[in-house]
Structure formats: C-alpha cells, structure tokens
Design a protein around this nucleic acid. Sequence first.
DNA 1: CAGTGGTCTAGACCACGCG
DNA 2: GCGTGGTCTAGACCACTGG
Lengths: 262, 262
Amino acid sequence: MAQPKCRQIADELRERIVSGALRVGDRLPTEPQLQEQYGVSRNTVRDATALLVHEGLVESVPGRSGGMLVREKVTLTFHAHRAEMPGPTAETDAWRSEVEQQGYEATQEFRLTIEVLPGELAERLKVEPESAAVLRRCVRFVNGQPSSVQDTYYPMDLAEKVPELLSPRDIPQGTTRLLAERGYKQVAYYDEYVSRMPTPEEATLLRLQPGTPVLHYIRTGYTEERPVRVSVTPFAGDRNRIVSTHGDASIIARFRPEEEPR
Amino acid sequence: MAQPKCRQIADELRERIVSGALRVGDRLPTEPQLQEQYGVSRNTVRDATALLVHEGLVESVPGRSGGMLVREKVTLTFHAHRAEMPGPTAETDAWRSEVEQQGYEATQEFRLTIEVLPGELAERLKVEPESAAVLRRCVRFVNGQPSSVQDTYYPMDLAEKVPELLSPRDIPQGTTRLLAERGYKQVAYYDEYVSRMPTPEEATLLRLQPGTPVLHYIRTGYTEERPVRVSVTPFAGDRNRIVSTHGDASIIARFRPEEEPR
DNA sequence: CAGTGGTCTAGACCACGCG
DNA sequence: GCGTGGTCTAGACCACTGG
C-alpha cells in the first residue's frame, strides 16, 4: 500500500476543506458515513480524522448534534513592539485595548505567587539558579475563551525595593510604568519566539484542542543596569499572532493604517 | 473512568521523561512490554505513545533496533533583528554565519519560480490579488537536516526594474543589498509570528515528525515608498527559536555577550 | 431517546532495518 | 530472521447532548 487508507481519506477531506467545499463550522461526514463511503473499519476512519484534528483543521464536538467541525481560525494580533513601550497606555491596558480594538471582549484573571525560579529563567535574569522570584500571572481571556497566560517573574531583591510588586492585585498603571517611576526604566527588550506543543498544564489552562500548538513568547526586560523581569507567555497557537516592527514605524503606518492604535 | 488508561500510561511515561529518569535518546519500553506492564491491549498502549509523540516528547524510529525514543531538543537561534539589517554581512550569509557560529553546518537549496501571488500576500505587498510575483525559495539545512524554508516574493514590476531578481541562482551579496544598491533600500520591517501545525507539504519539505508544529515567520520589507518584498518562512518548530530585540542593543550585548555576532 | 464521538479489546498482516 | 512500530479489522461499552 503506497498510501495508507487513513491518509487517503484524510487527504480527500482536507482537500474539501482547503478548496472551500467545506466551510468553517461545517460538519464532516459522520464516522458511519465515512465507513460506508470508503468501505473501511471505524478505526481507520478515526485514524483519518485524527490526522486532521492534529493538523488543527478540524475539531470534534461531542453530543447528538456535534461531530467533526471545520475549525474556525480566529486570530487576535498581539503587538510586541507596542506593548510596554513608552506611550500613554499602561501595559495591561495595552493588551486590553488591543483586544477591544479588534472587536473582542477582554477579561483577565490575576494571581501572585512566590516561586523558585527555574534555571532557564534565572539565567535570563542573571540571578542564582533556584533563587526565589515573584511570579505575577495573568490569564487572559478573549470573548471568555482563554487566549494566553502571561507569567512575569521579578527577582526577589527587586521586589524588596519595590514592594508594590508583591501586591496580590493587578497594578493599575502597569508594572512597567511602576518600575519606571521607581527608577527602573526598561530600555531594552530581548524577545524569543518558539513554537511547540503544549504541556498538559498549558492545554488545560488554555483549553486547547488536541492538535493546537502554543506560540511561546519570552520577553526579558532590561534597565540600563540589569535585567529586571522576564515574561513567559504561551499563546494559544490557533487564536493568536504576534506582530513586531523594526525601523521607521511611520512607513508601516502608511501602508497598514489599521495597525495604528486608537 | 475518570482518567482513560491511555492517558494514565502517557502521564507516567511523561513523568519519567521530564524528571530525567529517561534521557534524550533513551528508548521507552516496547509495546509488548507496556501491554504486559499495564495489562492493556496493544491499541491502548499505542494511544498512549501517540499522545507523547504529538506532544513532541517522543519520536518513533522503525526497525529492529528502533523504538520510541525520547526526542532531542536542538534549538538553532535565528536573530530576526540581525538578519538583513544594515551591516557587513549579506542576508543569506547572515543565516549561514549564524548557523556556523552556533556550531552547526549550513547548506541551502535555492529555486526560483514565477507564481501567482496568494491573496494574503498580495495584500501585504499592496498589489492586485492574483498578480504575478517572483518567488525565490531557499530551503535551509542544518547538519543536513531541513530546518526552514524561506520563500521571498517580489512584485513583478520590481523584477522588471531589477532584473537580477530573476537570476535563478543565489545572489552573492544578498537581495536586500542588491535592492539597496538599485535604490530600493528597505527601512522598515513588519514581522508576524504564528504557531501552527504544518501542512502536508511543509511536513514533507521539513521532514517533520508527527507532533511537530511550525513557527511561521512573515516579514514584509518596506522602502520609504512601498512594500518591496514579503518573506514567508516556516521554521521546524522543534529545531528553531527566533530572537528579536528592541531598544538599546548595547545593554543586551552586555548581559548576553554570546549573542554578539562574530 | 438516539446519534455523536471517546475508549478499549483481541486479533491480523505489513514494512523496516539490524544482525 | 525477527523484533520493532504502522496499519487495519470487527467487534464492544461508554459519555455526552439536543430533541
């Protein structure tokens, strides 16, 4: 068998989706229908649809009127260069206003904990491995659906100098601005982007369908003197896009006016 | 059953991997061993390992001395802000020198075609949908393994003014520099990052294991006057990381000296 | 209720690749 | 050869959810 049956079936269904014969929200044929149509066993049909699910093209909805649905591709755009850069809006509000500007509803859940800093992150902050850090976690929802989790770690010594960092509530003006007011103005950012499959925790937190990767975004912020914080943000890959610009922003604005805030 | 058997098995195996009991390159127990150990059927064992494969933790190697292996996590770092920015090195050489600096071997395959521009990209270049464009494709290999595919599209009218763009060979000084010499100096970039599962073509081209997402990177380059090119680069998610910086680069260099080129 | 997909079993044959 | 995983079959029971 040059091509396994499950792949042939998947290929035909995929073709129907990308060609537009099946549109977003449409139901694929049910498993019994596909068994009949291709003359294969149920498991083979399931192997085929599993391929499409893991490609992120299709999602399964349980129940009587459920089935395998062609998946929606929403994309919320997150502007890396805009967030937290000097400007009129505070950082958390920056995210909120981005979302609302794009016509969605934004909500957040905040939590503060003290954590032992994983080695990977200690290295970015240039502190001892295993040292303590303040973790400010913000789970961000778009239209009630979890969209990303921003975990920001501050070295413990910084939290002693800026005790508001230990406030277990969202800081209205944004922590970046607060730090700037306290003499810790961030003037450089180191951004990393990775695409990977979610850990089970991430899958739960972001309510990810099987076959959905995360876009992992790590930002390290520096003052003139030192790194002061590292933010680790897994974005649900199927619902987010990160945008960043370099060079003369006014040119971008000319050709992408929709990108301008406000 | 609160927790399906296949997940319990996957959880235990995952735990052994993340805890370090199983290291990169180690073999998981074979299917018969797991059947025996957990008292389940072979399909259940396979459902369990399939979960790990789709999480990107494990890969299967066929043959007598194959099996399910804990997967290696290489990460090549690609510096978005460095590539193509004014500097001494040309753009393709920039990639090559990045790879070699990180201790790997770099090879590339180049191909030129004329394509009908997909609507998505036509929009970025501000040309009519369905218009023709020059596609310069570069498949990039690290240690002989495909790592990313850079597809760069130039509007046809630009190719008429800069006919070297139609050269079916790699352009030694780099197309960005060539364009600059011809009066099309790019002064602004619009970068987009998306994480998603590969299309079958991408999976083939990048030889992706099941469960490997791609990090999709799209850069639109602008002169003072207009967008002149759009590069679409799917990176194999398991082998790449993209880095970008904002603000005062000298501060980054102080804390991450390894990041400095040369 | 009836029909959807989710999980599981117990078999079978095959392609691969090391020894 | 022979053990690895890859594919497939034909059954079974279950959880979920709209009508």
